[in-house]
Structure formats: C-alpha cells, structure tokens
Design a protein around this nucleic acid. Structure first.
Lengths: 341, 341
DNA sequence: CTGTTAGCGCTTTCAC
DNA sequence: GTGAAAGCGCTAACAG
C-alpha cells in the first residue's frame, strides 16, 4: 500500500459513539474532558476512540467555533535570508499552542499575493503575518481585512497598520560606537544598494554616533551591491585612497568578508591595523572568516515571535496598536574588531 | 481601527442570497458556475456577492467535499539550507492550483513531529510531504496515515514509503569525471562528517569514477566538519603531505571555500595548479569566491516540485509507487576548474 | 449523568 | 429555473 491509501474512511465521532454505545453528544463530552460524564463512560469512549484512531475533524470544529486555530504567513521572498528566522520565530510562537501556519510565498508578485490573501481568507485564518524581503515599506494589504494583520521586517506603508521592523538606525549607531570604543577614529563605510532604506538608516545612525564623538566618516559611504565582490573592490579603492583608515563599517557580512579578503591581500592585519564590522550576523559567514566577524544581529527570530504574539493578542481582542515599531538589534563581538588574547 | 476589527461578521452565502433575493441554493449554483441558473439571476447574485465582499468558507466546503485543498509540509530543520529550496519547489507546484501549504517545523524533535502530524491530520490535509535535513534515512511516519505521504531529501527507512532524494553517488561520480576531463589525475577528497550518508555516497561515486579511469584517490578522504575552517586546515595538511595533487573534490562549497583560501595563501594558482570543485552549489558562496566555484547542484527545488506532484497524483488516486528514488544532480562549471579566457 | 435537538456555512438531490 | 430539505462532523444548550 504505497503512500497509504487505507480504503476505510477515517473514523468520525459517531463511529466512536456507536462503538462505545453512547450518543454522539456524550462521546463529544467525554473526548473534550467535560466534567459531566461518568468515569466509566469516559473510559469506554476513550478506548473506542483509540481503537478507531479517531482524529477530530478540525474543520467541523472550526465551523462551530468561528475560529480555526490557523494563521497565514504571507511572505514575498522565501529564498531571502531574512525570511527564514522570522518564519521560524513565528512558527515557534504558534507551535507551542494549537495553532498551525499556512505558508504562502508570493514571490514578490502583487497578483499572486492577492490570490494567496484570498485563499487565506477563505480558509478563515484567524490572523495574518506579512513578511517582506527588505526593510523598505511595502504596500498595505488594506484596512478591509476581516482578521488582524501584522507586518514583519518590511513595514506597511499605511501608518494605521502595525509593523515590526529591525532598528537599522540604532544598528548603525551601535556599530560605530563599538568601533569608537575600540579606539578607532578613522572610520569608513562600505555598503550595498543606496536605494535600500536599510542602507540609508544605518548610515544615519552611523553619522549620529560619529557626530556625537566629534568625528566624521572617512570619505563618503561607498555604495554598490551587497556582495563579497564589491566588498573586495571597495576595500581596495578605500585603502588606496585613504591609507590611514583604521576601521570599516560594512553594510553586510558579505561585504565585510570581501573587505577582510582585500585587507589580507594587502597585508593589513585585522583587527590590529584595521577593524572590520559587518551587519546581519549571518553565522555561517561571520564565524568562518579569518578572523571571525563582529556583526550586528537584528534578532529576527525574536521579531518573528513578537509578530506572532501580536497576532495572538489581536485575536484575543487585545488592542495591539499601530504604526511602525523598530525592534532592538544587538552587537555580536568577534575577532575582527577585538584582538583575541 | 488598528489591525482591522471590522465589527460586522463576514458575509455568508445566505447573506448574499438574501441581498440578491434568491434562495441559498440558487446563490450557491450561481457562484459556482452551475449552468441551471438564469443569466439575470446569476448577475444579481454575483453583484450581491461583490457588494458584501463575500468569501466562501473553505471549511464548510471541505466538510462536504471531503477534501480540503490543503497539504502538510513537515520539516525537521527549517534553518537548514536544504529545506528552503525544496519547500519553495513544493510551494510552487501547489501554488499554481487551489492548494495551500501547512508548514510545520518539528525542530528535529520526534515528539513535536508527532504532535504536528496529529494537527495536520485533524486539519484533514489531503497529503503530506516530509522534508528531512540530511540524506540519511529517517524513521517512517508509518503506514497508518490516512493520506498520501512523500518523503523528500531524507528518505524514509521503510521501503514501502515513497522517498525522493538527490543522487549523491552520481554527484560524486560527476565531480570526479569532470576533474578527469580537465586533465587532472592526482585528485584528493576533503569532506565533512563521515557519519553522513551523503559523505559516503559521494565517496563511493567518486571512487567508481576514478576506478573507471584507472586512477586512485590521493591519500584517504579527509573527514571532519562541513566548515570553511576545516577546508582551510585540511588543504594545508594535504598540500604539505601531497604537494603533487592537482585537484581537490570537496564535500561542500564551504569546505571548498576554505581550500581556495589556503591555496591562495600557499601560492597555488586555481585552477591552473590546482582545480577545486565544491558540492551543493550554494550560489552565494560559489559565485563570490575567487575564482568562482565549480560545484554539484542537487536540483532541490525540482525535487520539491516532484514531491508535490507525487502527492497530487496520489490524491487523484494514481499509484505513485514506493521505494527510494534518487533524483539527478547537475554539474555547474565555474572558474575553479576551468581557466577563464 | 445522558441523549435529543438545533445549528455552523455550504453543496446537492429532488420536487415544484 | 428555482427552492426546500438533507446532511458533512461536530458542539452547545436543553431536557430527561
């Protein structure tokens, strides 16, 4: 019997009742631990259910209850590195209870997203989390959705929605403050695509921290792609133009890896001659570099968990508020900024 | 109205019927494109549905139809790199139609898996895809599941189940054949944890290819972790012990990155002096190295798609067979084995 | 304590 | 063409 086709229809509550010799209602009560059932009867019902390997039909239940114990996760870019931890966090928060997650990947396509949204609504999900692929604001799903919606990572462009997004401004500030506290004063910035809100927010934070210390960025921020290649090329240019830099704040761990490569090629010792800090704390990159990479971690899993929690709260009727909330990030210090003893 | 609590209950079919001035039955027929409805009536019903933004209740439908248009995706390691493409492939295959995916991550915990399985069954999913985190066989869910089950990546340990897994043997063979076709004859192998079936299968394939060419591996396969660190250390040992190697087959792209690093440090030119081939074709690693990394791609997205297709077929009553099927992998050639002109 | 009854929202005969 | 009625599997009053 490949891939299991048991001919027999799955057992229903009435099958259980019949086998136990009681009414459906009594069977229901027994199975749901209601206290107005004789112990002996409950035993009999439980045994019957066991024997038939009875599994209650969640849909029938949902039909009555009005809630399905189901939430929709509407992502736009499953492949993206940032989606996964958020998704895990959400799954975690839900997984504990009776909730299951519908995963829908719109592949960044608005039409598909609308289609998925419709499907979720028709499945009567109790709530929806929308996970974007960047921290740039995305179009709101609108205010007409009959269930609570929370936006994670990419905030909604409608301030009436509730959005949770990592605090890139503070991230940029923390990175610089760390470098300064390591005694660096000639700090440059290499980052990715200037069109990303993330890039700009981090720069703003970085500049604020420099300002506060009476410092300035060495040269202008260098923009291009979020890749190792760019990190290498940019570092080469930087070190030639400004040989006196003593630290580089990188917009991503990938860029930082490239910077480390070039520093090595040019005989600059990290962190002694040059401190390097990355962003995202992509473990597999950050812990396998030489030296290991100090980085800013956006706590995405926690962000996902919080989004889920908010959806829960809203389902329970709690007012979860609105607007875009910037969640704390954290600094993870490794050998690329602090010499190991 | 944050997070959208529209006070009014979502519209039901009977609301639509009332507004259109017809019976529920007629409204149902009109909305489902049944042909025994007058054109004018249908128009009226459709307009009413539109006006109330009526969304049919999939659960009520499912109760009647006996199928839910829903499949369960039971993964054991969401974080893993291999899960995602499979998951995407499956979502793709399903997404086209009316099917939605329930995502459950068991975090590699059998208890949690059982719990999730129960939840899926009670939600009356039409089928289940089980995605493992390695290519080592995993415990079967058993033959008692009332819906079709397909195992992806990690095969089931029960041959009565249907499993789809990448062909690591052929992958190993292809890697070596490619190196040989590049004129290499002194080939070594650096790989990860010997306890992984993947590691052993690839070695077996590699040895077969070497045999066929009358060659032998240089030294024994070097086992440890699947990390860049190990790749660097192993390469250093290898090049010292066997300075005459002209190619290294690596068990993962991460290891290969490490090997490239060391080769560079020791002044070995890649690919001229030393050809390097990785495994997994992890794009972000493979395309950002110097030179770019030739690698074996397991076509995971396609594997996911196929798994979904099989589940579909089984739902439609097609016999999908049983046993473990090894799906083709492919060689992606880049600069680490072939000099760029 | 237990069983009867009435639905949840929808589709589907089967009369009219 | 259209509508009344019978459920899908289950829970929640309410009687007994």
């Amino acid at each position: 019997m490949a891939a299991n086709e048991t001919g027999s229809r799955t057992a229903t509550l009435s099958d259980v009742a019949r086998l136990a010799g009681v009414s459906i209602a009594t069977a229901s009560k027994a199975l749901n631990d209601r206290d107005d059932v004789a112990v002996a009867t409950r035993q009999r019902v439980l045994r019957a259910a066991e024997e038939l390997s009875f599994t209650p039909n969640a849909m029938a239940k949902g039909l009555l209850a009005g809630r399905t114990g189901t939430v929709g996760l509407l992502t736009s870019d499953l492949e993206g590195r940032f989606m996964i931890p958020i998704l895990m966090g959400a799954e975690d928060a839900f997984g504990a209870g009776q909730v299951n997650v519908f995963l829908c990947d719109a592949r960044g396509d608005a039409i598909r997203e609308q289609h998925h949204l419709k499907a979720l609504l028709s499945r009567r999900v109790d709530g929806i989390i929308v996970v974007g692929r960047q921290t740039d604001p995305r179009p709101s799903l609108g205010q007409e959705i009959p269930v609570p919606v929370v936006y994670a990572y990419a905030p909604s462009d409608d301030p009436r929605d509730l959005s949770l997004t990592p605090d890139n401004y503070v991230g940029g500030r923390m990175a610089i403050e760390h470098l300064i506290s390591c005694g660096r004063t000639r700090i440059a910035h290499i980052t990715g695509d200037p069109a990303y809100a993330a890039a700009q927010d981090r720069i703003a934070g970085a500049r604020a921290a420099l300002d506060a210390a009476g410092l300035e960025l060495v040269g202008e921020p260098m923009f291009s792609e979020w890749t190792e290649h760019w990190g290498r090329d940019a570092a080469a240019m930087l070190l030639q133009r400004h040989p006196d830099v003593d630290a580089v704040f990188c917009g991503s761990d990938q860029i930082a890896r490239g910077v480390l490569d070039t520093a090595r090629d040019l005989g600059r010792r990290v962190p002694d001659d040059l401190a390097v800090i990355g962003y995202d704390n992509w473990e597999v990159l950050a812990t396998n570099s030489r030296p290991q990479l100090t980085s800013i971690d956006a706590n995405l899993q926690q962000l996902g968990r919080q989004a889920a929690q908010r959806v829960f709260d809203a389902i329970d009727g709690v007012d979860i508020g609105q607007g875009t909330h910037h969640l704390p990030v954290r600094l993870v210090i490794r050998g690329s900024t602090i010499p190991r003893r």
